[in-house]
Design a protein around this nucleic acid. Sequence first.
DNA 1: CTGAAAGCGCTTACAG
DNA 2: CTGAAAGCGCTTACAG
Lengths: 340, 340
Amino acid sequence: MRKTTITIKDIARQLGISKSTVSRALSGHSDINEETKKRVLELATRLEYQPNIIAVNLKQQRTNTIGVIIPETVNRFFAKAVGGIQHAANLAGFNVIICQSDESLVTEKKNLQALLASRVDGLLVSVSGETDHFDHFETVINKGMPIVFFDRVVESFAVSQVISNNYDISKEATQHLIKQGCRRIAIIAGPQHLSNSRNRFRGYLDALKEADIPLQERLILHSNFKLVRVGEFARYLATLKEKPDAVFAINDMAALEMMHIFKNMGLKIPDDIAIVGFNNEAICKYVDPPLSSIEHPADELGKMAAELLIGQITKGEAMAMRHCINSRLVIRGSSYRQTT
Amino acid sequence: MRKTTITIKDIARQLGISKSTVSRALSGHSDINEETKKRVLELATRLEYQPNIIAVNLKQQRTNTIGVIIPETVNRFFAKAVGGIQHAANLAGFNVIICQSDESLVTEKKNLQALLASRVDGLLVSVSGETDHFDHFETVINKGMPIVFFDRVVESFAVSQVISNNYDISKEATQHLIKQGCRRIAIIAGPQHLSNSRNRFRGYLDALKEADIPLQERLILHSNFKLVRVGEFARYLATLKEKPDAVFAINDMAALEMMHIFKNMGLKIPDDIAIVGFNNEAICKYVDPPLSSIEHPADELGKMAAELLIGQITKGEAMAMRHCINSRLVIRGSSYRQTT
DNA sequence: CTGAAAGCGCTTACAG
DNA sequence: CTGAAAGCGCTTACAG
């Protein structure tokens, strides 16, 4: 393959100087004769010299690479987050390796091992939907590996975390439904071993409590992030003699699936059942009625997480920071009753 | 940070043998005393020894990493392709670095430089919508870097390529519309400097020709993959005295945007205007009427491309292979006229 | 301001 | 079967 890789040795030989000097000229490091520096630089560009980053890494004991573990990129939230991460990382001269856990704990552990084996300088993690214990991360943290969690965080760890205001926004969404006259609000909640799902659920509960609306267990589905049980739940809800008059769903796909099923059953959205989703995917505005949802600044989350991590890696900032970035409720036809 | 990284030297010292022997035991290489091998392996696991992959890479002059350049991960097609790539790569013990060009030529060039600087062993590329010349790739190919294009390929290059049957499937989709009674079929075509867009466009043209339907220039929009001009085009079409009776769109987002606008104008889908999209995003079935679209085996494409590349890297397979994986037309309510 | 030397952690011909 | 040595390409104290 690449037959003619040229190294500092080649430059040194051609210029009749030592490779130490070449190295110093190239890195612009210590005091060095302007003249020799210029000659080195000129020859380097003429030869299209590219430093061998692997050698640099070995010497430096750093890879300038951060590892990212996310559930899946087909989830638009994480696709956007990855965008933010990459921009921030590239700006700081870091590479990014992305692994997908596919919402599986086993895969998440494998990802972690793979990234450690690749000697990444730090880790950005959003936990899988299956992850109900966290010792694999604990081990890594105890070894001193810089790590920042975002969105699906592990609140108990004393490391930096970036989240959105799950509690507040869920409360706001629920209150919005209440204001539309809804009293029997079903919820598809996320796995309760994840703190962000718990916080969202709490927001829902508190909104009900403050409005003196009794909680109805049968209107609650604790789902993972897959859609498997959503259809089943929708059909179940429709059989109740006191049907729900609203659904608040953990993600847009679940919301859309429900809306689809309800519509097929002849139920009117939002008048029979109002619906609010989560993530504000591009699709929301194309369905009929358009789906209310919660807009997350996923790219901001990713960017912030990356910046925190890089600060930790390069400047050794050890303080565990918690950042919260606000989401926003986007009200559309699926939850807005003009008749009220 | 990682204070106690343990190396083969440590193992060698503790066992009173040379690090050459340790290395050989670990890699299971040449003949080696079973007994010493066992002792080395045991100590290694006890010490949680992890080989320093950077050192291995430097020695081996290989990184076991492939670089990927795609337009954007928020595009579901590429998100799926990335999934296929990663599975195939991990299976073969390769790491993957993903870069997004954001449909920009400048960014694409930057990505290429970054990946070369990272010393990836090979490249997987799907070209940006803006890319109308290809010398940046040519340079890299001439240097002997293994490279495989997929989906948005550069047909003129003598390197391996993986595509779907763009021509056939576009022809089929157009013929389907014709069969529905459509005669004025508008098309949102992709950038014509990309061969896959050209092939799709050819499929459309040939279907019309074979059905003796005259081509109408004003029904054609050559767009890039962004949505900017789609709304404008939709409103323009609606002003024509002879409105189109069908639209074939380059991607689902464009199709949905059009459908949305037409519906707001009071046009009936599919009876006034039938619509077919491209990519078969999850949303297609949730809109009203459900959107006909073309299902791509994006993960298959990615997997195949990765396998070809890895074969080239590890076995030096130099033959330029062309693979074609068939897409599938999914007919839904947006293009199926029950009255015909 | 520059060079010789050591070293990052590993692998692998070359002897024995 | 094992060890000493060289080397992958770079950086950086240490002298001078």
